[in-house]
Design a protein around this nucleic acid. Structure first.
Lengths: 236, 236
DNA sequence: CCGCTTTGTCACACTGTTGTCACAAAAACC
DNA sequence: GGTTTTTGTGACAACAGTGTGACAAAGCGG
């Protein structure tokens, strides 16, 4: 379900070819770059989840790219695996110093590479802090993925949870259905815009318990979309 | 103050010599073993912080020791770096599968080895106390590796125990299957994610006795994974 | 060498979730 | 009031996610 993007930075076609094949079998999506400049552009545009970086590259060594990545705050968390020839294992030390997370010497067994990629992704992906959001009695716990109304846990589906989480992190602001689809469903998913309405309804229903009714936190902004607000609606 | 013990397991005197020199410069204390038996004894007696394990050893291959270590619950967390000849890199895959945390091919630059040791120690330095965990009638004794429901001991496999121990030390929080694999199985083990489901089921089953049923402490978080919680689920 | 346990994987059953539709209700516009 | 546009609602079939029993391989203890 969670497709991972791997950026391959290597100037040898044969290597890229081999890597692409191995990675696609293991269900990764591949991006490729032959030089540092392309690599950097791709990183900024496509935001890959991991980078396989060859050491010797035209237009600057891999070390240079590595330094640049680790200096830039927006890409700091991007894990990097270095590819290096056996004869140049000294470079490894430099690389690990600068911030590569792992390395592998060419030639290598595809299975090993895959294993290392997966291990690295698991190791580095757990860093996201989940917050605890609260509006009066309504509490959303990101960590446990639960919502409480006072003491009682509320029952809702995953999509409704994501929707509520988004709303509670961006309150007092109207979003179009299209924007909600982008943020909650993901940018490259195509579903009907009216689907949002249905999930809004399900969320509203979930925000009602025998005791309380918080369903009007989700307000309709006619002609535009929806808004989450703890203050009154103030339209119509 | 925090002196680290490194156990070198290799039958070549020259290698041990070189390693010892490099490690002592880097302020580690060295233990040495020439064969598996000595190695195991030293591990039990001296409790080193990390093991450098040669692949080819008299009296059984390094793989064997590795298996033994990773099976034994008291030494499971001991980080292991494999030493292997370049000609035998295939072994690396086996080794990583069984639970080695890293590997390095001979000959290697001492500086690289030191870098890797430090990196590994940084990663795994969580010193885990063996504690006694309790949720209402359910008691987990880390020391004796037993679980009680009131007075009655519960019967479960090692993996189920580890899983429960992890859950009870991190309650009220949803984990993905991948995260559970990472924490309970180990970062470098590659098994199917659905395997987690099966062990969850076995654990749930183990949490039921004729008298009580604590199986709903393990809650399914649909679309995400599982959560251990003494409060209600909030989903189906 | 042989039972016994543990483990990872699979196929299948089952359940909740999802996106879409048709229609009702409401609001806006004339 | 009548018409058009927009949103709410219940139903539903397809689907993805999860529970479950069985099984073979591997480890363990004799």
């Amino acid at each position: 379900m969670n497709e991972r993007k791997v950026l391959i930075v290597d100037d040898e076609f044969a290597i890229r070819d081999m890597l692409r094949m191995a990675l696609e079998i293991a269900d990764f999506r591949c991006l490729e770059a032959e030089n540092i400049h392309d690599a950097y552009t791709l990183i900024v545009d496509e935001r890959p989840d991991i980078v396989l970086l060859d050491w010797m590259l035209p237009g600057g060594s891999g070390l240079e790219l590595l330094r640049r990545l680790k200096r830039n705050d927006t890409t700091r968390e991007l894990p990097v695996i270095m590819l290096t020839a056996k004869s140049a294992e000294d470079n490894v030390i430099q690389g690990l110093d600068v911030g590569a997370d792992d390395y592998i010497t060419k030639p290598f067994a595809p299975r090993e590479l895959i294993a290392r990629i997966k291990a690295l992704l698991r190791r580095t992906s757990g860093g996201d802090e989940q917050e605890r959001l609260q509006v009066s009695e309504l509490v959303l716990e990101g960590e446990s993925r639960r919502v409480f109304l006072g003491e009682d846990p509320l029952d809702m589906g995953p999509t409704e949870f994501n929707l509520l989480q988004f709303f509670m992190s961006h309150p007092e602001r109207a979003y179009t259905r299209s924007q909600l689809l982008d943020h909650v469903w993901g940018a490259n998913v195509y579903v009907e815009e009216r689907t949002v309405d249905v999930h809004i309804r399900r969320l509203r229903k979930a925000l009602q318990s025998p005791a309380h009714d918080y369903s009007d936190l989700i307000q309709t902004v006619r002609g535009t979309g929806y808004r989450f607000s703890s203050r009154g609606a103030g339209n119509r």
